[in-house]
């Protein structure tokens, strides 16, 4: 672990149970983690091992059934709905496997949106959105709507939308799962670029190649951490 850097994520004994009684599914069974500012972490594990569940909790989209989660120094359990939206807006950038761009809305407008929710002025967010799109190599596609872009391009727009706010951490849930090898390479390069600017990057992946590119790999099995390896690049 990168001792010295302040912690951005601290998870302590987190469990998540879906449903109740007979049909209850224990997706996480006591996960504890510490991730420092600036780390690049790959989360691996078989399908159904609880990776997405953990990621949703880290992204403040879902709440744990038990256990504690601190983001920076904030105990997430103590935040109300309004404060959670501020955390999501200021500290987190999310990249989904299915891109999740807003339909019938141009690339630039999609990228502007997180800034709009932060209250950034129109001209300022225009500027920053264009810059973010340029940094993912889509400066010439800003007026295109999602349905006019390829999968790889859509995912790059989604990455631009995640990095435009300079979040403390970017969470990517199988960002290359729906992409060809060429696009996968481009997306991974982008995630590294983001990491180099100081943001923590946490990426869920099935591919060993992706995991090797990271400096730390956490493996889940049946809702528990079974391996946590850090290696020097």
């Amino acid at each position: 672990m990168s001792q010295g850097s302040p912690l951005v994520v601290k998870v302590d004994g987190v469990t998540k149970v879906y449903g109740q009684g007979e049909t209850a599914v224990h997706a996480l069974r006591g996960v504890s983690l510490e991730i420092a500012q600036g780390e690049f972490v790959a989360i691996m594990g078989a399908s159904g091992s609880g990776k997405t569940t953990l990621m949703n909790i880290l992204g403040c989209l879902d709440i744990p059934t038990a256990g504690d989660y601190w983001i920076r120094n904030l105990n997430v359990a103590e935040l109300d709905e309004e404060q959670l939206s501020v955390v999501r807006s200021q500290l987190i950038g999310f990249v989904f496997q299915s891109f999740n761009l807003i339909p019938r809305t141009s690339a630039a407008q999609n990228v502007e949106l997180p800034l709009a929710y932060q209250g950034v002025s129109l001209s300022e967010r225009r500027k920053r959105a264009i810059k973010a799109l340029e940094s993912v190599g889509l400066g010439d596609r800003s007026r295109h709507e999602p349905q006019e872009l390829s999968g790889g391009q859509q995912q790059r727009v989604a990455i631009a939308r995640a990095l435009v706010t300079n979040p403390a951490m970017v969470l990517a849930d199988e960002p290359t799962g729906a992409l060809d090898t060429q696009s996968t390479k481009e997306i991974l390069e982008l995630l590294h670029k983001i990491n180099e600017t100081g943001s923590t990057v946490i990426v869920i992946t099935h591919e060993e190649e992706v995991a090797r590119a990271a400096r730390r790999m956490i493996r889940l099995r049946d809702g528990q951490v079974v391996e946590d390896t850090t290696w020097v690049a």
Partner: peptide
Amino acid sequence: TREIGIRKAIGAPKSA
């Protein structure tokens, strides 16, 4: 509904 989810995930407050 899904769009609302996306908006909330990227930081939309309830009031927006």
